[in-house]
Simulated scan of single mutants.
Amino acid sequence: MSSLALPTLINLALAYAVLRFFFSREFGKPSLVHSEVVIFDPELAEISKKALSLLLALIACSILLVEFLPSRDFSLSWIALLSASPLLLSKRRTEVVKNIDWTTLVFFVSMFVLMESVWISGTCQELLGRMSPQLGSVLMILALSIGLSQLISNVPFVALYLPAMGTGVSQGQLMALAAGSTIAGNLLILGVASNVIILQNAEKEGETFFYQIRQN
């Protein structure tokens, strides 16, 4: 965690500076007034609370297992599946499943399928083979993860780059990959898929990021 403290602080500082520059009017507004949100569906809200509580408990359990009993740790897939069980086992499951953002899920799945296909096809192996002596360099990892993530997004890049690094990857190399991909996600919109998802949802509500920049 200490290895990622500096890039995290840099990201936060740069994000604040960019927001302050492009949305200066927003910073001059008075404090937000919070009001209690009316729950229109108490039954579904109660089920969601149970699912959220289960999710937090499983995450805490996983962290403790990784720290003290690494051999007993369980897959993140199990955390997701078990956390969703209160919703999937409820009478409202059909309604919930119908309202899932399937487009976004297909978007994520397609990215990983594409990156795995690219790796299996051998398209990148020749290029990476020429760079193999430098692939393990911390500076190279940072440069590639920040640069290429703007083209294919940071998570697919990590999935593609890890096999290229081979076995015996050091903690420093993994931290460099994590730091670079984190910086990439905060650099441009395409650096991380969640940026695209947020913009898509904003556009559904009639808000456009570039319009807001022009207005400010």
Rank of each mutant, 00 (worst) to 15 (best):
S62F: 09
F112V: 08
V96R: 05
E116I: 15
S145N: 05
S48D: 00
P70G: 03
G191M: 03
S85G: 08
S35P: 08
P7I: 05
V97K: 09
K29I: 09
F157I: 07
Y161T: 11
I120Y: 04
N11G: 15
L65Y: 13
A5K: 09
G168S: 04
V113W: 07
S48L: 06
V158T: 06
G180Q: 00
V33K: 04
E36R: 13
V169K: 05
G28T: 11
G172M: 09
L142A: 12
F209Y: 07
H34T: 11
A57T: 10
L188Y: 14
M175S: 14
G168W: 03
I198W: 06
I183R: 04
G172Q: 06
A45S: 02
T94V: 13
Q171S: 13
V113E: 00
S71F: 10
F209N: 05
A60Q: 05
S121P: 07
L174T: 13
R20T: 08
E207N: 07
S110A: 11
K50L: 12
G206Y: 00
I79E: 01
L6C: 13
M165H: 12
L162K: 08
E205D: 07
L58M: 12
W78T: 01
G28H: 13
V97F: 15
D101S: 11
L64M: 06
S31A: 12
N11H: 08
R214D: 01
W119V: 15
I183T: 03
L128E: 02
S71W: 03
L89T: 14
L9N: 03
V155I: 12
E205K: 15
K91I: 09
L4A: 03
F157G: 02
F27W: 13
V18S: 01
P7Q: 00
L151M: 10
L58R: 07
K91Y: 10
A143G: 09
L114N: 02
N99Y: 12
E126D: 13
G168H: 04
S75D: 00
F74T: 02
W78R: 05
Y211L: 10
L9A: 12
I63M: 10
P156L: 01
L144G: 09
S71Y: 04
A80V: 08
E26G: 15
V18F: 09
N195F: 08
D101M: 06
N186I: 13
F209C: 01
A17D: 00
P133T: 07
L190Y: 13
L19Q: 05
V97D: 01
A45Y: 04
L160Q: 06
F108H: 05
F107P: 04
L114I: 04
N216V: 11
S121E: 00
Y211K: 07
G185E: 00
S75N: 01
R20L: 03
S132Q: 02
Q171N: 10
E67I: 14
L148S: 12
S170E: 02
V109P: 06
L187W: 15
F68V: 14
V118L: 04
L12V: 15
E126P: 15
S110L: 11
V138D: 00
S83N: 05
V97M: 13
M1H: 12
V138A: 09
L44K: 15
D41E: 04
F108C: 03
V169R: 07
A159Q: 01
E126Q: 14
E43Q: 14
A193F: 11
L12Y: 14
V106A: 08
N154S: 06
